[in-house]
Design a protein around this nucleic acid. Structure first.
Lengths: 261, 261
DNA sequence: TGGAGGGTTGACGCAGCGTCAGGGTCAACC
DNA sequence: GGTTGACCCTGACGCTGCGTCAACCCTCCA
């Protein structure tokens, strides 16, 4: 007759594990000796070995009891189920590994490479780091909403950077938000550029965003709010744009009627 | 300003998950509105997206906070660590899958194929199912102790089955233990055969078990006890063997002095 | 006879939420 | 103005497979 420690040592598990199997009813409680110690016979050793064999094969403890008393076809069916579960779990972990590998490679979190290279271009043309981070967060919001559509719109955005007015716009905004002035006059210039370009785009029917994006205001509301949160002076920009007949900032919409001034 | 449900929906997580992140301090608690509802600004949306990006890449929640504020080299190091953890976990699951595949293929649990084919041979020569199961459990005890050495000893055991006396022995024992008699005379015949063969083996120096097994009594004590547990009449067999000068049953040892009768 | 090294029960901790329970709030419709 | 359904709130337990105290008892050996 073995003590619990001897049993555990024979099978290669911890004492705690054996007691756990008792608790959940997987291994029957053996008799006790005079001093209350559990005493195990050889059949318990065999049972425990069989339990561990299944557990080490990835069978959840809750299913082991049923499997041990199953007949051959039921056993085979259970094995298939377990194996499918294991495969699924492995699958999930593999996906995680791919994702983390991409995280290690990319510049920033939660952004596809097309967007990070757009951000790099912004840095090159002299946009301040603070503003690039604001852009980045805006793109994060867009990508979360349309993970598949965003990469497709990046070539157009990159092309826009060839227009000297856009470059000028970004630089003017960078400067304005970097200064200490509460109401920098450069904001007016920026608003003029934006209104002009919005006018052109509107006239030619061009748009950065597709149908779905045009219906769904939330991401753009969030992006506008993000700018305001980052620098309250962004509110002023929104006002200036509204004066010029344009609602919003990050996706400009023509206001229904001339602004009341 | 978003409610928790809107925030969760935007990012694609559950409300409960967001609250969990608050609890563990991963996402800061936002301000409340007049009725006590949490209200989220766009920065919270971005934070949550970044958290989920890491979490979906397999980063434990407890490390996400540190990773989000890490610089590039520290981030890369953390990524290496996470990836190693993921690889290890996948490794473990793959091992489980191999094991369960082998379980599906084999006859019985916790036994190598060499042993299961030995058990099949026993069935072929007419050993009762009950006795085969007893043998199986005995082998389970041996394999648990010496997983590497057991397969090597199986060819010898299989060869023994070519000896008609062994076949006779198994059949006699099968019959004796299947009967209702408390003291079947066939047990004597079995004891005679075993003693005779033990004598031969002892004289020629042959042995089923190697050095290590000869030193370690526990598995054999357990196997003897297993037989007694399965059928108390096995005690009688042990007595008969002792009368003939042999201790134990499953690994016979010469008794130090002639039995006192 | 005392101390080391067993054994006993009971309870919390771990990861990442899911899922009640038992409330209050908001917006809309009758 | 009352009802309804969809949200929101906090608090707490559940899941998996044990690890790890805590506080106490038993056995064996020098």
């Amino acid at each position: 007759m073995l003590t619990i420690g001897q049993l555990a040592a024979y099978v290669g598990v911890t004492v705690r594990a054996v007691r756990h199997y008792h608790q959940i009813g997987l291994l029957p409680e053996p008799g006790r000796d005079a001093s209350g110690y559990r005493r195990y016979g050889p059949a318990a050793v065999v049972s425990l070995i069989r339990i561990r064999t299944l557990a080490e094969a990835g069978v959840p403890l809750s299913r082991i009891a049923r499997m041990l008393e199953a007949d051959a076809p039921a056993f085979a069916e259970a094995v298939r189920k377990i194996d499918a579960d294991l495969r699924e779990e492995i699958e999930r972990l593999e996906t995680s590994r791919e994702r983390i590998a991409r995280l290690a490679a990319g510049d920033s979190l939660a952004l596809p490479p097309e967007v990070t290279s757009y951000l790099d271009r912004l840095r090159e043309i002299g946009v301040t780091e603070r503003m690039v981070e604001g852009e980045r967060d805006g793109w994060i919001l867009l990508v979360a909403r349309w993970p598949d559509r965003v990469p497709a719109m990046m070539p157009g955005k990159l092309a826009q950077l060839d227009d000297p007015r856009i470059v000028r716009l970004y630089r003017v905004l960078s400067g304005a938000f970097e200064s200490d002035a509460a109401d920098d006059p450069r904001l007016e210039e920026a608003a003029d550029i934006m209104a002009e370009m919005a006018e052109e785009a509107y006239a030619s029917g061009e748009t950065d965003f597709d149908e779905a994006a045009a219906q769904d205001d939330l991401p753009f509301d969030l992006m506008d709010a993000l700018a305001v949160e980052a620098d309250p002076r962004a509110t002023r920009m929104l006002d200036l744009m509204r004066e010029r007949g344009w609602a919003r900032w990050t996706r400009m919409d023509r206001l229904p009627e001339p602004p009341s001034r």
